[in-house]
Computed example of a mutant assay.
Amino acid sequence: MALANLGAMLPPWKSATLSPDSIQRRIFWVGNALAIGLLSATQFPEWRNLLFFVPAMTLWFAFVAFKWTNHIKINGRVYAMDASDRRPDRPPALAPDTDEQ
């Protein structure tokens, strides 16, 4: 969980096609999904605990993403509590400059 959040704050690679915001968003959601899966595995014999645990953790991660980040993007629109987090994605870090003449 902590690694997912760290990777979401500091993207570990640069891309010519993906923006840093898109990379951070993907790391956040994949990392948190893995965290939920691994933590769920600890409850395997008591599967009834998962009926509470999985929805609670999913709602918590969605709340964190909505309140403090720009990691909720649906159909090209960013959903966030703070207006400054609703900005459009930055351009890809390794994209060629279009201003060259």
Rank of each mutant, 00 (worst) to 15 (best):
L50R: 09
Q101I: 15
G37W: 09
P20N: 11
M1Y: 06
R48N: 05
R26N: 07
E100N: 07
P91Y: 02
A65M: 04
M1R: 00
A80Y: 03
A16N: 07
A8T: 09
T17M: 08
F52N: 00
S22R: 15
W29G: 07
T69P: 00
L51E: 03
A65N: 08
T42A: 14
R87L: 11
A95S: 15
D97N: 13
T17F: 09
R90S: 15
F52M: 05
S15R: 11
F66S: 01
F44V: 09
P12N: 02
S22F: 01
E46D: 11
Q43T: 03
L59I: 15
L10F: 15
N5A: 04
H71S: 00
N5G: 04
I27C: 09
L94Y: 00
G7N: 15
I27Q: 08
K73N: 14
F52D: 02
G7Y: 15
F52V: 11
K67F: 06
L18K: 12
D82I: 00
R48K: 13
A35Q: 12
V64P: 00
W29H: 11
P96A: 13
A33E: 01
P92C: 03
W47G: 00
L39M: 15
N49A: 08
P11Q: 02
V30T: 10
V30A: 08
F52L: 14
P91L: 12
A56S: 13
T17D: 12
N32Y: 09
L3M: 02
L39Y: 12
R87N: 10
H71T: 00
P91R: 11
S40G: 15
T98N: 02
R26Y: 02
D89P: 11
L6G: 01
P92L: 09
P96S: 12
H71Q: 10
W60G: 12
A62S: 08
I36Q: 04
L39E: 04
P11E: 02
P55F: 12
D99A: 13
D82S: 14
L10D: 12
H71R: 03
D99N: 12
T42N: 09
T58H: 04
I23K: 10
A62G: 03
P12T: 06
M81Q: 14
R90M: 10
A41C: 05
I72F: 07
S15E: 09
I74N: 08
P91C: 05
L51H: 03
D85I: 00
F28M: 02
A41L: 10
A33S: 08
S15G: 03
P11K: 06
I74F: 15
R87I: 07
S84L: 03
W13T: 11
S15D: 14
T58N: 12
